[in-house]
Write a protein that binds this DNA or RNA. Structure first.
Lengths: 115, 115
DNA sequence: TGTTGACCTGGAGCGCGCTCCAGGTCGCAG
DNA sequence: CTGCGACCTGGAGCGCGCTCCAGGTCAACA
């Protein structure tokens, strides 16, 4: 069973070791399995989940958002509740996409002006 | 000539008075014209520019980005240079759009799973 | 002219999301 | 067994983007 060291996990995910520990403290990932001596051992599942979290972070979700995200997906809520929550988050992201497109339009207008 | 008080400017733009002053200090807007007594008087042009800045802020550009943006547009650079700079910024925003779409895809997958 | 409230300035404070540090532990290589 | 580097913890520090505050000024109105 492949177990990755913190350094390897960091390499695979593009996230620093400190940030990985921070995410774990904040409940965004893990808890990560430990060796007898207390060193973290990341599994492929952990790596996958970290990728998911960073994807959502890159999209602008905050730490608190992600914590709620993780908490709900892991909870005993019904599938319907989970889906509803996800759809709500999805709508929030689409708002951000809309804001981005407004900014692109502004830029395009300026570009046209200077071209 | 319509001159707006700080409170009116804030109301029109949806930005607080403190933030307006902050943006001015940082060189993102203005300098705003003053009365003999030192009070700010915002013009319609100022309001328009503030809208542009907040649009770009909402899209995720940082204060330093905006400062550079303003500096270049106001500079004596050639039209070509300005257009090139704007296109570069545009590309960066599109990267953000792409990141957002990746997150939307992730969410859609989860939604499908729970539906 | 006096009161009142919006405004002024400089600077401190704050929440977020890391990032770094000190002082100690683990575990492999020699 | 020793050395050494990767890892551990708790906590401090930092850059960003505001936000708030104290102490003072301006201007409209009674």
């Amino acid at each position: 069973m492949s177990a990755l060291s913190p350094a390897q996990a960091a390499g695979r995910t593009g996230v620093t070791i400190d940030t990985l520990r921070y995410y774990e403290r904040e409940g965004l990932i893990g808890p990560i399995r430990r060796t007898a001596g207390g060193r973290r051992q990341y599994t492929e599942d952990d790596i996958f989940w970290i990728g998911l979290v960073t994807c959502l972070r890159n999209a602008g979700l905050g730490i608190a958002d992600l914590r709620e995200f993780v908490a709900i997906l892991r909870s005993e809520h019904t599938r319907q509740d989970k889906a509803a929550f996800l759809r709500e988050r999805r709508a929030a992201l689409q708002q951000r996409v809309a804001a981005l497109h407004r900014a692109l339009d502004v830029l395009d207008e300026k570009i046209a002006y200077y071209s």
